[in-house]
Nucleic acid binder design. Structure first.
Lengths: 348, 348
DNA sequence: TTGAAAGCGCTAACAT
DNA sequence: ATGTTAGCGCTTTCAA
């Protein structure tokens, strides 16, 4: 039962005071080399580790970050979580994971996050209500939103540059010679969906395309498959479809091919957003705007820890650019594609 | 700053002692209805929540479970994590997430898990070294392994019934009339891979098939694609391939079709293990043995909490059966397939 | 039923 | 550089 060893035991064995033991484990504390040696030795012999819980109590900081995720089927979120856990670990923090129901029991999470004295909170979901973010913010807990923004002030957010990303998609499809467009939407209330949709439509409108068909896929694969059925059986079938994310785009492609017998991109071009792992799988070879997980996590972690550790007090709004990665799910324009690091990228 | 309210503040406002406040939030403590009312009211007005950290310090239990995951690209793990978080939340526990490198800095995790006084630990990875499990176990922290077993005593584990699952795959492929078999292995050292491989080979041997080709895919998609290239360009190409998991089976199928131009299942049958989401995607329609996440999580959580809460002291070894779900990545035998709940299942 | 007092394991002033 | 003292916020005997 090495777990029950306290600093008193170590102090006794090393023949010093508890303070000395404490100092030995406190970076930058003043302690004589000889004392340190004795303590270290005793600690090792006893299997002693300072109790982080007790430490938190004193410090008033737990070094734990609450991370709330919603939908784990979309590979973007597992990737995010993985990077987040590593990044926080590397910075000496730990990740307390909360799974939120899509509906919004997320309010029940607030007391728990508070109770555990989380030093900060990361909300990683396009669809979660902003109520939780606002509550935490009001309670003085630094908040970072990933993949969505909110109107509330004081809340940091890290998103892709959805506006430029969606514009690039429009340009790309126009350059490919498409004329009849459709958009498969995610949850309408999410800022990410709104930004992507508005920018896509806006750019098309500038090019003189007023009509863009629309179906709601609600960020789900079932929704996207249903959207495909509806859109692609119309007489005036669209020849280019932009799905609000890859997760839907994949289901859309499958429905188009396997349920409807269409060829991609000959019969219809499909573009997604996120550039998740499955987009690279040869069966899909999905053209998609990347959402650079690593950069987003770095920024989110820095924004959060800068506030927690008092280096910064203002909320930070970051928009991270991502390349439009060209594969074969959409007709390739004759020009404007460059190969960078072995990846075909749209650079008009 | 509602977060900084303590029981003293509530006590003062309610005109009672700190003890009374404590009792109000302790289920089953003796407190007068009137006192409870006053305290509840004051707490609500002040936005007070008992500090879980301080509580943990006294109780010697943190109500936190450390969960260590390795590889998040394989959709099985995000699904597992999602269920795990919900299940633990529902039982009043919380999940402290650790991402382990495949190599094994997992030893560096031990001190951290200890420091945070995790009440238990769940290792969810087929490949993690068992050193961490043994250390925790030795330190008196209950351990549950998911998706692998270990020789160490005192460690609980929950796995699929890999032996019967792999046997079913052999039977199924034999019934489909196949004669030349191959196995794409996961990490050779993992118990899961060993069980699946041995049972698959064993069953084939019983049927008089002595030779089974083998390639190591190391549980990675790159490895599986490479395995496909090697196996399927041989002159004596196998006509049936069992991949140690779906994650590899998918890459194997993609390589077979897109790099090698083969048809599935006409040229080669492919079967996987796990029945993850992508196995159901029409592009793959992968025949696979399911690994029932929900049941596995229920059992793992119960096994862990029963030990933590002292209801049981012995380690539990659970093997959860899963159906062989028949889709179209492998030739279908003429008989032995039943439709249950809209799913085709191999029931010879 | 209630309050006073002790203490969970640790760190941070403060002396020395 | 080291030990002593006083808590961090809470629960829990122990009396009353």
């Amino acid at each position: 039962m090495a777990g029950r060893v306290t600093s008193v035991d170590v102090a006794a064995r090393a023949g010093v005071s508890r303070s000395a033991v404490s100092r030995c484990f406190t970076p930058g504390a003043s302690i004589a080399p000889e004392t340190r040696r004795k303590v270290t030795e005793a600690a090792k012999a006893l299997g002693y580790r300072p109790n982080a819980i007790a430490r938190s109590l004193i410090a008033g900081r737990s070094r734990m970050i609450a991370v709330v995720v919603g939908y784990m089927q979309n590979q973007f979120y597992p990737d995010l979580l993985d990077r987040l856990a590593r990044e926080l670990q590397a910075r000496g923090y730990h990740l307390l994971l909360f799974a939120a129901s899509p509906e919004g029991d997320s309010d029940a999470l607030f007391p728990q996050i508070l109770a555990y004295q989380a030093d900060g909170i990361i909300l990683a979901s396009a669809t979660l209500s902003s109520a939780l973010a606002d509550e935490c913010n009001a309670a003085g807990i630094p908040v970072v939103l990933i993949n969505r923004t909110t109107d509330g002030t004081g809340v940091s957010s890290v998103t892709a540059d959805n506006v430029n990303g969606a514009r690039a998609v429009a340009d790309f499809l126009l350059a490919g010679g498409h004329r009849r467009f459709a958009y498969v939407a995610g949850t309408a209330a999410s800022s990410t969906n709104q930004d992507r949709e508005a920018a896509f439509r806006g750019r098309l409108a500038e090019a003189g395309i007023g009509e863009v068909l629309r179906e709601d896929g609600g960020y789900s694969q079932e929704g996207a498959a249903e959207a495909a059925r509806r859109l692609l059986t119309r007489r005036d079938r669209p020849d280019a479809v932009f799905c609000a994310n890859d997760h839907m785009a994949i289901a859309f492609m499958d429905a188009a091919r396997h349920a409807l017998g269409l060829r991609i991109p000959q019969d219809v071009s499909v573009v997604g957003y996120d550039d998740v792992g499955p987009a690279r799988w040869p069966s899909y070879a999905l053209t998609s705007v990347e959402q650079p997980v690593e950069a987003m996590v770095d920024i989110a972690a820095s924004a959060l820890l800068d506030r927690i550790e008092g280096r910064e007090t203002a909320a930070r709004i970051a928009r991270v650019p991502g390349a439009l990665v060209v594969r074969s799910s959409a007709r390739r324009p004759a020009a404007g594609i460059m190969t960078i690091d072995g990846r075909d990228v749209w650079t008009p």
